[in-house]
């Protein structure tokens, strides 16, 4: 069994880093030993300037191990990772793989006992850092019903600003702008319980973005939505990736969603078993099968064709949409 630990950049992805791939022979041994060197490795590659940026601009997790009280099992085991500024990272894994728990460490909702989490240069163990971390890292949760606090949309979007003590005039302008950007204009005075699932999650997203965070964490934010709602939220995430410098961490088990991001981290039973560009990580059949995940549809087709002797990656090695897949098949045929 192989475990993916690749870091090769896509030619189209200018924000990804270029690191040689490495492979472990035995998964367990490999997992235990790789995390720390890997962490050091990536910093080394970025050089001085990059390192500066990383220390201020991202999240570092260093040898994080965690278990819930009164339960001997590790929820997370020896997790180490670094997120770069402006990166869109998907953390995927089966139900119960620890991905949502990990998410709660990434904004200081949980504080490590073993290991460290540093957010924008601030260690989460230092309680004095909490207020600033709250301002810089925003989070959207899974259940739309359980995160909207206020009786109306506008009040809810304003909630974080109220907590931060933002003056009324500024608050008013920011709430109005954010509501407008997320396409919620006209719903300002609606009660959350009368909105659709997609609308509720967009309100939650607005409440997160209005704080002008540097990092946005989406904890399975689409998993309870219907296809229309999912698309509403994903369209917003893609827009944010295009138009802002926001670092986006997306927890999901929808690998078709993960495919759109810049980097995928795969968790299995609380350990990182894969980390790298989506196309590579999500092409790795054995690792996915081993982690209760399934190829995204596009990759499934490409792998199937490859099995029959048609490697579409020779035509285009950055296929992630249906359109690109169709174009590549058609191009391949014309080349034959």
């Amino acid at each position: 069994m192989e475990t993916v630990q690749k870091w090769r950049s896509l030619s189209s992805c200018n924000r990804c880093i270029r690191i040689d791939s490495s492979k472990g022979e035995k998964p367990d041994l490999f997992l235990d030993s790789v995390s720390v060197p890997f962490f050091a490795f990536s910093i080394m590659q970025w050089g001085d300037e990059g390192m500066q940026e990383t220390l201020q601009g991202t999240i570092h997790v260093d040898s994080l191990t965690f278990q819930f009280q009164g339960n001997g099992e590790n929820v997370l085991t020896d997790i180490s990772l670094s997120l770069r500024a402006g990166e869109w990272v998907s953390i995927v894994g089966h139900n119960g793989s620890g991905k949502s728990t990990l998410a709660k460490f990434l904004n200081g909702l949980l504080i490590p006992v073993t290991g460290d989490v540093t957010i924008l240069g601030m260690n989460t163990k230092d309680f004095n850092n909490q207020p600033l971390i709250r301002k810089k890292v925003s989070m959207v949760f899974q259940n739309p019903d359980n995160q909207l606090v206020a009786p109306t949309v506008a009040d809810d979007v304003a909630f974080g600003l109220e907590n931060a003590g933002v003056p009324f005039k500024e608050m008013q302008a920011r709430v109005r702008n954010t509501i407008h950007t997320l396409g919620l204009s006209g719903l300002e005075n609606s009660e959350p319980s009368r909105l659709s699932g997609g609308q509720k999650q967009r309100v939650a997203l607005a409440g997160a973005l209005v704080l002008q965070p540097e990092i946005l964490i989406l904890d399975e934010a689409t998993s309870m939505l219907d296809p229309i709602g999912k698309k509403e939220v994903m369209d917003q995430v893609q827009r944010l990736r295009r138009e802002t410098e926001l670092t986006i961490v997306m927890i999901t088990h929808d690998l078709n969603e993960a495919l759109m991001s810049d980097r995928v981290i795969v968790l299995k039973e609380g350990r990182i078993v894969g980390d790298g560009p989506p196309l590579e990580v999500l092409s790795h059949s054995e690792m996915l099968a081993d982690t209760n995940l399934i190829h995204p549809f596009i990759i499934e087709i490409m792998e199937g064709l490859k099995g029959k002797g048609y490697d579409l990656r020779e035509v285009n090695n950055t296929i992630i949409t249906e359109q690109e897949l169709v174009d590549a098949i058609w191009k391949l045929k014309q080349m034959m």
Partner: peptide, 25 residues
């Protein structure tokens, strides 16, 4: 649509779909 070639499109399994693409190729 892209190729202008007629395909049997009502496949719902991955394997059948791959086979259809192969025969198209």
């Amino acid at each position: 649509r892209a190729s202008g070639q007629a395909l049997i499109t009502d496949h719902f399994e991955i394997d059948d779909t791959v086979d259809e693409i192969v025969s198209f190729l």
